[in-house]
């Protein structure tokens, strides 16, 4: 008797924990599929440590057949940097939402970027604090309605949406890899993540990938509306593409760094 067809999950996915804990239509599953494919392609399952944040990203704590640590809100990058400094042979993936990356954990992101920490950071941008019920996030679009901006985000009062990859690209030293992908283009997103993992493995510098993602639950959208908001409105504000590659010459603003210091 032929073996019945089985789902084409990335090999590193843990079938025992599927169906996963994310809502119907949530982009996390797609981002984690892209990550899984990249880990499979590089053959690094045995030495990859996956860290997930608070917010919906924590629901991935048993997602993979990877050693996994679910940390505190915004603190995933420091935990994984701690691991990487202690065990440089490991490959560490820091996985979080836009709130963890750009609000409560922003100082860690900025500091890891300027240190060029050997960590691959994946930020899922869905424009809302989803697990807590759809409040305004650093990435909420101008005019977008959320639970704490019921009349639409007023940028005069609340600022403009955070451009995370642009921020990291502006401050990271040479060797950094920075990109923004989208769950609407899984192949491209997977390639970005794979390059980000390679960047770490080759010891070149920080890798930062933002993934534009969906939250039908808090957006209160059907499938058609979900795709429209993601592909039209979000992509217009957050351009998809590579912002820094390790081969790239650093921007003129990034000065050469000879040793300095007052004479003793």
């Amino acid at each position: 008797m032929a073996i019945a067809a089985q789902p084409q999950m990335p090999r590193v996915w843990r079938a025992e924990s599927k169906p996963h804990k994310f809502c119907p239509g949530c982009g996390h599953g797609i981002v984690l599929k892209a990550l899984g494919e990249a880990v499979d392609a590089l053959g690094i399952q045995e030495r990859t440590i996956f860290g997930c944040d608070i917010g919906c990203s924590l629901l991935s704590w048993d997602f993979f057949n990877l050693d996994t640590i679910q940390t505190h809100h915004g603190r995933t990058t420091p935990v994984l940097v701690g691991i990487k400094r202690a065990r440089p042979e490991l490959v560490v993936v820091s996985y979080m939402g836009d709130g963890g990356a750009y609000a409560i954990g922003a100082q860690h992101l900025v500091s890891s970027a300027s240190r060029n920490d050997l960590v691959t950071i994946i930020v899922v941008n869905n424009t809302v604090y989803a697990m807590t019920g759809g409040q305004m996030a650093p990435t909420t679009l101008p005019g977008q309605k959320t639970e704490t901006t019921p009349y639409g985000r007023d940028v005069e009062l609340t600022g403009r949406p955070m451009l995370g990859p642009e921020l990291v690209a502006a401050i990271a030293p040479p060797g950094a890899y920075v990109a923004r992908g989208s769950v609407a283009n899984v192949v491209q997103l997977k390639n970005y993540i794979q390059k980000g993992l390679e960047n770490q493995i080759q010891g070149r510098g920080i890798a930062f990938i933002e993934a534009l993602s969906s939250c039908p639950t808090n957006w209160r959208t059907n499938a058609a509306e979900t795709w429209r908001f993601l592909e039209k409105e979000m992509s217009a504000y957050f351009p998809v593409g590579e912002l820094r590659t390790p081969e790239e010459k650093p921007a003129a603003r990034l000065r050469e760094v000879p040793a300095h210091g007052p004479k003793p």
Binding site: I69, R75, P78, V81, A86
Partner: peptide
């Protein structure tokens, strides 16, 4: 970058 990070990197070190 701060004591929050010092604490959490220490957590990472012992996990490793």
């Amino acid at each position: 970058e701060d004591e929050i990070s010092a604490g959490f990197t220490t957590v990472g070190g012992v996990l490793a």
